[in-house]
Amino acid sequence: MERTGMEQSHPAGAARARFNVLRWSAYAAALLVALSWAFILLDGNSGFGDLFRERTWQNAGQFVASLAGAGSGAPSPFVQAARWRETGQLALNTLAMSVLAMGIAGAGALVLLMPGARNVSDGTLGGAPSHTGRVVYAAVRIFYTLTRAVPELVWAMLIVFFLSPGIIPGALALGIHNLGIVGRLTSEVVENLDPAPARALRAAGASSPKVLLYGVFPQALPLFLTFLMYRWEVVIRTTVVVGFLNAGGLGREFRLRMSWFHYDDVGLLLVWYLLLVIAVDVLSAQLRRRVRWD
């Protein structure tokens, strides 16, 4: 490995160094998979053996039947208009939570768009490279890494300590996590865009907000919106999970009905959940197609 430095300047050597990374990664991955499965299967309670018992599949079948409303005795929630209306309101709250979450993530990413891009901080886009710029750039990138690495659910666990239950804490937890993801992707878009318009504006004496507005936005906005739409598809699936922690919407009700063994109600909530997911997927695909306005 001590020869790596010399090899890198050499095309053949560089190829060999690349090969080594791949080969060692393959060994490490294989070892990791083997160790993980060994660790899980050697534990007597892994539940692996249960997969091959008839009893397990009978229970699973019964559970699916009770989701569909079989065997509870009471009239199924699927045939009660009032239940559909109540749960529909919860579904709308869940949808609102996801939209607010995207609003938080999008607004944050727009504010940090410039300071979070390397080519802004080092002056490639015009403007003087400053020490402060570099420090702010590093701080923004660390902030993105931290917000991204902590899952939404853990953010939600922390946030319920300060905020009362409702749409806001759930939206905030989802928004913070997705800010890290959308922010990083958007900064990378700014780093990869053509610097000519921004430089020309700067040379013509445009102020920083004007360079942002006319030199960076027009190029970066379509991809930024595309990322937001992609994340929205993920976020709508996660709203339910964040809702488990008293954050309202479908998730809270899902968790409560689950713990009361009201499986037919759980089935109704799942239907709303799937309707929301499908609606957002379709809407996001439509909007993504529209966004390419050039």
Partner: peptide, 17 residues
């Protein structure tokens, strides 16, 4: 996590679920 909750209700809690 929703899959996990459904599995736990259907076949019980285990790492495999």
């Amino acid at each position: 996590l929703v899959w996990a909750l459904l599995f736990v209700a259907a076949v019980g809690l285990s790492p495999m679920a």
